[in-house]
Design a protein around this nucleic acid. Structure first.
Lengths: 217, 217
DNA sequence: ACCTGAACACCGTTCAAGT
DNA sequence: ACCTGAACACCGTTCAAGT
């Protein structure tokens, strides 16, 4: 009963466009993401989008930054390893819900939310008492793990449900050259019932390493 | 004087197509890579490519596998950490020469060369005496580092020479919210004269961590 | 200020036709 | 077996015109 506008169902706007684009990419993948299709979802003409977004690149930057904003920042007081571990685990969850994001993350300009996120990680490392060199390296190690590990995991998931039969056949064929370690590894993957927390295990390797190097220096 | 064929300058073939595609992507980036442009470089019609490559996806898989084949495999005897460190450093170099590759690596089916590479890393970890769980995690940690770290580095390089001015301005603007740690980090990047071997430092964090966990278990 | 259809210069790929 | 032009169903984006 409140507002009954004639044509514009809702006022367009950058936020609404980015949300629609994220929802579409979550469901159909980033390759299927098209200006025309977003417009279709929003019930507007294609060119209307360009009133709020300068181009597709700009839109992708905005999308990544919204995802970055969904990640819980590490708490800055107390146990620095625990704080980073918790925040990284949350980032891992968020990125798995937006499987198109990790591949975009590194290759595009950081928006404000991602800069804030980067800053908070650096702050935690600094206040942990690590020296400048170790903060520098530690930041790279931690962010690389979050993005790189998740990207690898997503690649594995996508290859799996894309063509599992083809993969199995390819293996039996290439197995003629015999890659026994590879076969074992794939078998281990199939036995791994998602309860092993590989992500956290490797992250602890890095965090404990940072702490150890810091103490001994 | 030897062979003077009339029209076909050289016999087309999958290998020659992939090499042309790699050269083009190295120079202009993967976004600019087009079936039509590869055909142009090779002096043939677009559709001729499809006699040797089933589609663009297949071509990208082949391109990545050639890059994988350029990486020196870790030597299987002797010091396992040294072998992995040397191979990883070489992979890092190779990937920096094909900056489009890391983003493709994780998201596409592995070809034979990449499977061989994966197998050799697993072999080294196994023969190092690590238990199954640690081989499994160690493989993920090492490959994640190679791809993830390099991808991050490439992203930084590309953002830099894409629009350095815009980045500087953006910083001065977003600095109104003040991200002091971030500013320090960027300054450290600018002072880092490529002689610090961040790649190796973080890799050692992982390798030493693996060794330590293995010994204490 | 915001919206939009028509048009432009591109894509990857199918198809039918050539040798 | 290998090559290829024409055609199809798409892209992102410019431009001029609407409100």
């Amino acid at each position: 009963m409140a507002t009954q506008s004639p044509t514009p169902v809702k006022p367009l706007g950058k936020q609404r466009i980015l949300e629609a684009a994220i929802a579409y990419a979550d469901e159909h993948g980033v390759d299927a993401l098209t200006m025309r299709r977003i417009a279709g979802k929003l019930g507007c003409g294609v060119m209307s989008l360009y009133n709020h977004v300068s181009n597709k690149e700009d839109m992708l930057v905005g999308m990544v930054d919204i995802v970055a904003g969904e990640i819980e920042l590490p708490s800055v007081n107390g146990d620095w390893k625990g704080a980073l571990r918790a925040s990284a685990a949350n980032a891992h969850e968020v990125l798995l819900m937006h499987q198109w994001a990790p591949a975009q993350w590194s290759l595009r300009m950081p928006g404000p939310a991602r800069i804030r996120y980067m800053d908070s990680i650096l702050q935690v490392l600094t206040e942990a008492g690590l020296d400048a060199r170790l903060v520098y390296s530690g930041y790279h190690a931690v962010t690389m793990h979050i993005i790189g590990f998740t990207l690898q995991e997503i690649g594995y998931l996508q290859v799996l449900d894309a063509d599992f039969d083809e993969l199995a056949n390819k293996f039996l064929k290439d197995l003629s050259g015999d890659f026994p370690y590879m076969v074992d590894h794939v078998r281990a993957h199939m036995d791994d019932n998602c309860d092993s927390d590989e992500f956290g295990f490797v992250l602890d390797l890095i965090l404990d390493g940072l702490e150890r190097v810091s103490v001994t220096s």
